[in-house]
Amino acid sequence: MKELNIGFIGAGLISLAHGLSVKSLINNPFFKDVSITLKKVADIDQSAIERFCNITGTKKTTTNPMDIINDDSINVVYILTPTRYHKEFFLSAAEKGKHIFCEKPLAFSLSDIKEMIKARDKNNILAQVGLVLRFCPIFWYIKRIIEDNKQELGKLLTAIMIDDQEWPIAGSTHVSDWRKDKSAAHAGCLFEHSIHDVDILEYIFGSMKDLFARIRYISPEAQAGLEDLAILNFEFQNGGTGVLTSIWHKIRRDFRHLELYFENGNLILQNYTGLSFKSLKGKIRKRKMTLASSYKEIKKVYIETNNLPNLKTGVDTYSYENFSFIKSIIDETPPYPSLEIGLRAHKIIESAYKSSNTKKLIEL
Rank of each mutant, 00 (worst) to 15 (best):
F8W: 04
I14W: 08
S15D: 07
S15I: 08
H18Q: 13
G19T: 10
L20W: 04
K23R: 14
L38A: 14
K39I: 06
D43A: 10
D43N: 15
Q46T: 15
F52I: 15
T58Y: 08
K60C: 11
T61Y: 12
P65F: 13
P65N: 13
M66L: 15
I69F: 03
V77T: 08
Y78D: 04
Y78C: 14
Y85C: 00
E88G: 00
S92G: 06
K96R: 03
F101G: 02
P105A: 03
P105K: 00
R120M: 11
R120S: 09
K122A: 12
N124S: 10
I125W: 08
V129A: 04
L131E: 04
V132P: 00
V132A: 08
L133F: 07
C136I: 05
I138D: 05
E152D: 14
G154Y: 13
K155D: 14
L157C: 10
L157D: 13
D163E: 13
D164V: 12
Q165S: 06
W167V: 11
S172I: 10
H186E: 06
D199E: 14
I204A: 14
M208H: 09
K209G: 11
R214A: 02
R214M: 01
I215C: 00
Y217N: 06
A222S: 15
G225R: 00
L229G: 03
N233W: 09
F234A: 01
Q237N: 13
S246A: 14
H249W: 10
I251S: 04
I251E: 11
F255P: 00
E259W: 09
L260P: 00
Y261L: 07
E263T: 08
L267R: 05
I268S: 04
L269P: 03
Y272N: 07
Y272G: 06
L275Y: 05
G282R: 05
M289S: 12
Y295R: 03
K299R: 03
K299N: 01
V301M: 10
L308Y: 15
P309Q: 08
L311F: 07
K312E: 15
I326D: 02
I326G: 10
D331P: 07
P337C: 06
S338V: 09
L343G: 05
A345P: 01
A352N: 02
Y353C: 07
N357F: 04
N357P: 00
K360G: 00
